[in-house]
């Protein structure tokens, strides 16, 4: 089995991760396990400067997803937040974001950092602000129900599946009406 991160080396570490209550199988090589933050280091290497300097270094590795790009690696364009002006390099040095927009700007590059700091997690699974959250609450519920639906269909429990499908329709309706309210 090949490593799911670099698709180059064989996967030597296999484990199950629980994210948002869903199990996800992870198969990675040792190098990626460390660099992509799947393996949480012990407390001594846990300090943020350590984490970030580690990341800073592997930025210079060819990290391409496909095999044929590795030979022609070029430095990526400079990443800079358009709202606060913080660059990705500066971020790795100070270990702090400059504004909310930085998160979107640095995007996927942050996943390994979050995984290392937060024991393999990179996606939020907690409170959603009441007013600001809008239809996120309902959308999350719908997503959960859809996964349940797929599962039921696969295991041919069609009666249950029909109930779940109805529930999803109800939630979708609710979402649409809430959007209506928001326009007033």
């Amino acid at each position: 089995m090949e490593c799911q991160e670099c698709h180059q080396r064989p996967a030597t570490l296999h484990f199950t991760q629980v994210i948002n209550g869903h199990k996800k199988e992870v198969h990675v090589c040792e190098k990626c396990a460390y660099e992509q933050g799947y393996m949480s280091q012990n407390s001594e290497s846990f300090s943020l400067p350590n984490l970030l300097s580690g990341l800073f270094n592997f930025d210079s590795y060819p990290m391409s997803q496909s095999k044929n790009q590795t030979s022609s690696y070029e430095a990526p364009p400079k990443l800079q937040c358009e709202k606060c002006g913080l660059t990705y390099d500066e971020f790795t040095k100070i270990g702090k974001f400059g504004c909310a927009k930085c998160y979107k700007t640095f995007g996927e590059k942050l996943n390994p950092i979050f995984r290392r700091v937060h024991s393999g997690n990179s996606v939020h699974d907690g409170k959603v602000p009441k007013r600001m959250g809008g239809d996120i609450h309902v959308r999350k519920q719908i997503e959960e129900q859809r996964q349940k639906l797929n599962h039921l269909i696969r295991s041919e429990e069609f009666e249950e599946a029909a109930k779940v499908r109805d529930q999803i329709r109800m939630l979708e309706k609710q979402m649409n009406s809430e959007q209506g309210d928001g326009d007033q």
């Binding site: 909310a100 998160y103 942050l110 939020h124």
Partner: peptide, 8 residues
């Protein structure tokens, strides 16, 4: 990402 904070 949830609530966005200055420190990761």
């Amino acid at each position: 990402r949830g609530y966005l904070t200055s420190c990761p």
